[in-house]
Amino acid sequence: MDQKINYYFDSKPTRLDKYLTEKLQSEYNFSRTYIKKIIESNNVKVNKIIVKPKYLLQLNDFIEIDIPNPESLETLPEDIDFKVIYEDSDILIIDKPNGLVVHPAPGNLSGTLVNGLLYRIKDLSSINGFFRPGIVHRIDKFTTGLLIVAKTDLAHKNLVKMLSENKIYKEYIALVHGVIDSNSGLIDAPIGRHRTDRKKMAVTEINSKRAITKFSVIKRFQKNTLICCNIETGRTHQIRVHLSYINHPVVGDPLYAYKDDKKIDFGQYLHSHKLIFNHPITNKKIEFVSDIPEEFNVRINMIEN
């Protein structure tokens, strides 16, 4: 069965193809080529009518998208290396390694965490369709650490509601460029798609959503700072964008730091360190902690000496 995605358009008049490219790339990791193919194959309706890519969306337009099922992910389980630190009948807590993409997308259907989950776990929630079974939220390819996976649809629905209401505490550790003078701070700056580089997000007032990141300093070095971050919102690349915005980008970030950071094989030094929330079914408070990878300690030893 095809996957169906719906949106109510709530912004200034925008071309359909531009709007869907931004939405489907950020939310589903679809390629621009695949999104274009979906639109040109008459799989998109606005207010129940098939429209052309150049259609100008108006406020409150109802968009319906039929995503063709190219193949079943049941045929793509793979033995992927990752650690499960907690499992019950409703949820999993994954400790994701560096370099692992969370879910497949058209043109990239293998080598992801989802492929590994399908290999190891019999039942996953179906709410997010065949590309993202069980995936409640995601972290970037080169971000390490904790991630929640839902095994049942009820658990998934409850977790999504908890995320939207900021009832899941998510704490990250990051090694950043520069010395942060303040012991703590709050970044309240809206994030949207970058105007010229579609792979990037940016702090902008245009087609953006509010984003809030709190941080506190763990340790200062001569040219770097180790910090703890807590996000109250879950925008794409939020911590990376916000820290770059205050001129303290994450070390190793290939998109938002400096040119030389692209030479760092590890990728960005950003780790999903702690999760605290009430279990979506039992309502019991649970807490999980993942120690920073050894690569963090190696890097810290390098900059200390």
Rank of each mutant, 00 (worst) to 15 (best):
P77F: 10
S182D: 15
L20I: 12
P133D: 06
E205A: 07
S31G: 08
T14V: 07
L124A: 04
D17W: 05
D17A: 05
I212G: 02
F288G: 05
Q25N: 14
K23S: 11
T204P: 02
L92G: 08
Q58H: 14
P53R: 10
T33W: 12
I218R: 08
D10A: 11
G234V: 04
N305V: 09
D2E: 15
F296K: 00
N247V: 11
K23A: 13
E78K: 12
T143R: 02
L76N: 03
Y55P: 00
I135F: 11
N98E: 13
I65A: 12
Y34F: 14
N183L: 12
L159Y: 04
G134K: 02
Y7A: 03
S184W: 12
N224G: 06
V250G: 03
A202Y: 00
S26L: 03
K199R: 14
E232I: 01
V51E: 13
H103S: 10
E294Q: 15
D140Y: 09
R193M: 00
N278L: 11
K157P: 00
F131N: 01
N283Q: 14
I292H: 08
S89P: 09
P53S: 07
N29S: 13
I39Y: 12
S89G: 14
R138P: 11
I212C: 06
I39R: 03
I148G: 05
I148K: 08
